[in-house]
């Protein structure tokens, strides 16, 4: 079965969605990602949806779910590169994805994850010391 690759970059997992998402693919991605976060003990998940042209409420909810699952597993989700039309569609669908952090592109998204990981380290390091 077709799967979306999940790449590890330092503390973060990078997912680039390059194909049209259908529901089964989305659910497979959710499963794979959950496994991978636990395996690699990642601190951040970056989802690049700049090639995604069509979204529906299911994909919107999937993004929300991924963010919620990642948060439980102590990883921050950042969605980057959303197209204007996609953003308008999601808002009109009533899916504001309030639980998800967003950034304009992969570079800014990575910077955001890096900042959060660093601050989390700082506090946990102090707690441990």
């Amino acid at each position: 079965m077709e799967r979306i690759p999940i790449l590890k970059m330092g503390d973060a997992l990078l997912i680039t969605i390059q194909v049209d998402m259908h529901d089964r693919l989305a659910m497979a991605l959710e499963d794979d990602l959950t496994q991978k976060i636990v395996q690699s003990s990642a601190k951040g998940v970056l989802i690049d949806i700049s090639s995604l042209e069509i979204v529906d409420s299911f994909i919107g909810r999937m993004l929300d779910n991924i963010a919620a699952v990642s948060r439980i597993l102590d990883a921050q989700t950042v969605v980057v590169g959303m197209r204007p039309a996609v953003a308008i569609t999601l808002v009109e669908l009533g899916l504001a994805l309030t639980g998800v952090k967003t950034a304009l592109n992969v570079e800014k998204g990575m910077a955001l994850i890096g900042k959060q990981v660093a601050s989390a380290r700082g506090t946990s390091g102090r707690n441990a010391g």
């Binding site: 969605v79 980057v80 590169g81 204007p84 953003a87 009109e92 504001a96 967003t102 304009l104 800014k108």
Partner: peptide, 12 residues
């Protein structure tokens, strides 16, 4: 608020 929400989704 819709405009703000859409801009936030784009990362702004």
């Amino acid at each position: 608020l819709k405009t703000v929400a859409a801009a936030r989704l784009m990362g702004a």
